[in-house]
Design a protein around this nucleic acid. Structure first.
Lengths: 383, 383
DNA sequence: CCCCTTTCGTCGACGATCGACCGAAGTTAC
DNA sequence: GTAACTTCGGTCGATCGTCGACGAAAGGGG
């Protein structure tokens, strides 16, 4: 509770009392506990407004950091962040996730140690690790569940790999969920209902309901890439079905269609490059892809009524035509009540969105009320 | 909290202590407060299991009742229920909602008094009123928002109509939300994520996330009737668009298509009757409608990953062919992870689902922890 | 230099909860 | 029939968290 307020809103004891409605004495007591615990520090005095100047509080970023890990199909990004969310050190290298968990996680482990050393942060300051992986994950256990592009990872207990190596909790989630979380925390802290649509090779969606990630009954929520779209019965999808959204409007699909139209492109990245070069066919195709995605999103807007739809992923680098196509259809096909205050915006976090979100997952865990309370009162529990 | 447990799970002080993990003394204290407050009563002793027999507790159904009101386009159902959820008295009569709020609510008011008298319950035992209306509602204020089939109701403050007449709170919500709530409470108390699909003249959907109704940013969530479906560009919808789900698979649409196929039918009700008479064309059409709805639901299953989809509304009276069509498509088009434990079932509450749900909305309010706590400690608050 | 404002810490009071103890009311063993 | 034992329920002191009031600290304004 206090940790939540401390995390940016306002940083003096009096502010906290005003915002939480609690008595000043209570606030002081708890702040002291947090300082004792090392999560909060005092930083000099602020400007007086006519009376005694307040003592400023802020998160103790020097003594608390987390690691964010963004695993993609072919890359691995690791970032060391303090609990304020600023990056202290980061790495990026090509890693084939298909090499299996042992090899990949060993690599991650090495990078994690390197970054800690590079930033000069001792291991004791590390408080949590967040990992985003490109596939469905049972969040409670941190195990990937039948991930299509992660051979060898099925049911692999990722957090257990790190127990023994690091004395902190390891949180694993789907990469799109992680992106949604990061975007919400960084850019739309006040939006209760948010969708993060990632348009990369495939298409996925992170769902934030009432400020919390919605993972669904089996942790499989947000898989919009395989929703069927009209007039696409001939589009074969890697999932085995036909007419899936991502088989028509995903980065790979757009590249294939562009190639078929006479403009060679192998990946979504190529399509993006062509659009940036001013290629008319690519531009038209991207906009058309936006319309198709918009058609699906229009349905989801009616169903879910979000406040914000954030579009990210590789293809969002050409967000002008993409979002234009999407908005065109969404505002036409969705009900006025639902579109009234809906905004469709490109992601503000670029390539680093994954690590930022993963780090944010870890930070949220460190600052979570129950976690903090548990840490503050170790002598309790046992009878 | 205690009220929640009291509401069915297990009814003795010892049970409560076991289930909540609280000390027996605390439980006893709070139970006493609840008895004092009149929400709970003691009913004799239970069977001994080797020691002193427990004193049984249950909700004081004699001194606490609520009213549920189900307003449809052409009907008005009112039911008096005790807070255990059993109906004490009910009424049903044809009412045109288009006559406007004053006329309709006056009628409701009369019925409410009649039912209280009929059941011999004094006004003091009434604790809350729940109302379901056929259109979007801003739940916090109880005002309909631009309801398509409720002329004159836009922004009308329904709860205010009853203040002065009844000394209790009045809760107003969309009829589909109310249905979803009722179904969850009565039939699937353990399902965190549930969809209630109502297929009547139109098509709507109530969304339960994590046990709570999801109303969306503008209270417009669940409006799946106007999601676009493939190969239906010629189907004109009352919303002004074309190709909407309910313009193809709603009760009215099915009747129209059946008529066009040479079998006269004016409403969804007629279609149901024809199916029950064994009409092959009607049967085929309903099953086809189920497939079309299933196509949309398949997308929502991927996106939302519910545990249960409940199908209600007039058309659900022929749920065999309807659900067959729906399941056919859902299990084919949705991902295995999402369909793994998904069940698609007909609503267990029939015609009375609306009033039951409305009553449940009221009961939930009466038993809500914050409400009870406020009631238990009246001398607090003011400084 | 005095008074006011704002902030911060401390102290006693209050309420909620807990654990322990005891009485109540049965069953079971002898 | 009586004595254990078992299970429930109520009471009492102790503890913890929170609150409100008071006073001290630290600055601005007349």
């Amino acid at each position: 509770m206090l940790a939540l307020i401390s995390r940016g809103a306002a940083g003096t004891r009096a502010d906290l009392a005003r915002l939480t409605g609690m008595a000043r004495s209570t606030v002081a007591q708890r702040v002291e506990a947090l300082i004792e615990h090392g999560l909060v520090e005092e930083t000099g005095a602020g400007a007086s407004t006519g009376g005694r100047p307040p003592r400023l509080l802020r998160l103790d970023t020097a003594r608390n950091c987390v690691l964010g890990v963004d695993l993609g199909a072919t890359h691995c990004r690791v970032a060391l962040m303090d609990i304020g969310g600023t990056i202290l050190a980061a790495s990026e290298d090509p890693v084939q996730i298909g090499q299996g968990p042992l090899s990949v996680l060993e690599h991650v482990d090495t990078r994690m140690h390197e970054l800690l050393a590079e930033a000069g942060r001792p291991l004791e300051t590390l408080k949590a690790v967040g990992i985003g992986v490109p596939g469905p994950v049972e969040f409670a256990t941190g195990r990937p569940v039948a991930p299509p592009i992660m051979p060898g990872w099925h049911e692999y207990p990722v957090p257990e790999f790190f127990t023994g190596r690091y004395p902190v909790e390891v949180l694993v989630d789907n990469d799109v969920n992680v992106l949604a979380l990061g975007e919400r925390r960084f850019a739309y802290p006040d939006s209760a209902h948010l969708l993060f649509v990632k348009i990369g090779t495939g298409i996925g969606c992170g769902v934030v309901v009432d400020g919390h990630l919605h993972r669904g009954a089996q942790g499989g929520a947000g898989d919009i890439g395989h929703i069927r779209v009209p007039d696409a019965a001939d589009a074969l999808c890697r999932c085995g079905n036909t007419g899936c959204l991502e088989a028509v409007a995903g980065g790979a699909a757009l590249a294939a269609r562009l190639t078929a139209a006479g403009v060679p492109a192998a990946t979504g990245r190529d399509v993006v490059a062509l659009v940036n070069q001013g290629d008319g066919t690519a531009l038209r195709l991207v906009r058309e892809g936006g319309r198709i995605i918009g058609d699906v999103l229009a349905g989801l807007v009616n169903f879910f009524n979000p406040e914000v739809i954030v579009v990210g992923g590789v293809m969002a680098r050409v967000h002008e035509p993409l979002l234009a196509g999407m908005r065109e259809v969404i505002y036409q096909r969705s009900l006025p009540l639902a579109t009234h205050r809906l905004t469709v915006v490109p992601s503000r976090s670029g390539e680093e969105g994954g690590v930022l979100g993963a780090g944010r997952l870890a930070i949220d865990h460190v600052l979570a009320p129950d976690h903090v309370n548990r840490a503050l009162s170790p002598p309790t529990g046992a009878t």
